[in-house]
């Protein structure tokens, strides 16, 4: 089976293009560029240490989202109404119902697809052409969600929201996120921080009926992304960003009750207060508490006359 990892220019953005678009936006903000400023492909490619081809794809994504404009004669520029605090919209690859990669992920989360799939089986299941399926498989493989197995098979990797992975994912974040925040060289993006604060404050002002778990999750990811992006160690930053993206995948929404949604937003804002004041050690401590409080503590089973069965990794059901 031949796989073409290059998506169509008209297709949905790949995760790497979205990430690159975010890096370009970060670069623009760091340099204080404003509306109308030029975005030269070559300079951006150099700054981001990639070739011009992906930079062009990322710039196209920024054009699609209204951050930039493109003219054949003069190239890419920031839009006249560019605001540095606007977040990059859009879910990770495959979040749209129409998107085949998203449908595959969603069906995997719902156990409609088994551990192992083949392109032929996916073609039959979704009634899609081989080219569309190979493209979706390539996209998922690029994001590390599918790996090639012997023969024609592809195997799903562990997703952080799978029951067996939740404890590991939580422990991973508990190890790395506070460390990223308190390590020397951490840099907070002030514009993104302001944008995140404004969005969380607006969320808190909604009535309970308006607290949508998906919106909560998007804000949660954006906030924790601030920490990932601010890490001085590039491997820590990349690893955290990749892991956070997994929490945004279709089928990954974890239901959180409105009270806990509000608590979590207030905890975020408290951490943000400390970050903006430059007290990163305090922020890291608060972050550790926040992550512990955010762990799903529901026992796996409970029955009259039998002690509840705690979540994996939660000795005695407590935060430990």
């Amino acid at each position: 089976m031949e796989l073409n990892a290059t998506p169509s220019r008209n297709g949905r953005p790949r995760a790497s293009h979205r990430e690159l678009a975010q890096r370009i936006l970060d670069h623009v903000r760091e340099r204080g560029l404003g509306p109308g400023a030029r975005l030269p492909e070559q300079a951006l490619a150099r700054a981001c240490k990639v070739s011009r081809t992906p930079v062009r794809a990322a710039l196209d994504l920024l054009v699609d989202q209204g951050f930039a404009q493109h003219e054949a004669a003069s190239g890419y520029r920031l839009s006249p109404d560019f605001l540095p605090t606007s977040p990059l919209a859009g879910p990770p690859p495959g979040a749209s119902d129409a998107d085949l990669a998203g449908r595959i992920l969603r069906d995997r989360a719902a156990r409609r697809l088994d551990d192992s799939v083949s392109v032929g089986a996916l073609m039959r299941r979704y009634g899609c052409a081989r080219s569309a399926v190979t493209k979706a498989v390539a996209r998922l493989a690029e994001d590390g969600l599918l790996v090639r197995a012997p023969g024609q098979a592809w195997v799903f990797t562990s997703l952080p929201h799978a029951p067996a992975s939740q404890a590991d994912s939580h422990e991973f974040r508990l190890l790395l996120e506070p460390q990223a925040l308190s390590a020397p060289g951490f840099r907070l993006d002030p514009d993104r921080a302001a944008g995140s604060r404004a969005a969380m404050t607006a969320f808190l002002n909604r009535p309970d009926e308006g607290l949508d778990p998906k919106d909560f999750q998007a804000l949660d990811t954006e906030f924790h992304g601030l920490i990932a992006r601010g890490a001085a160690n590039r491997f820590v930053a990349e690893t955290l960003a990749q892991h956070l993206r997994m929490h945004e995948l279709p089928g990954a929404t974890r239901w959180v009750n409105p009270v806990r949604q509000r608590q979590a937003m207030l905890e975020h804002i408290g951490i943000l207060d400390q970050m903006e004041a430059g007290r990163f050690d305090v922020a890291a401590d608060l972050l550790r508490v926040h992550l512990r409080l955010s762990q799903d503590s529901r026992p796996r089973a409970a029955s009259r006359g039998a002690p509840p069965l705690p979540k994996p990794g939660m000795a005695g059901g407590s935060d430990g």
Binding site: N257, V259, R260, S297, A302, L309, G316, G317
Partner: peptide, 13 residues
């Protein structure tokens, strides 16, 4: 809190 249920009620504030 009955054993095993700690965290459930805290999540509701």
């Amino acid at each position: 809190c009955p054993p095993g249920f700690n965290g459930i009620f805290a999540d509701y504030g």
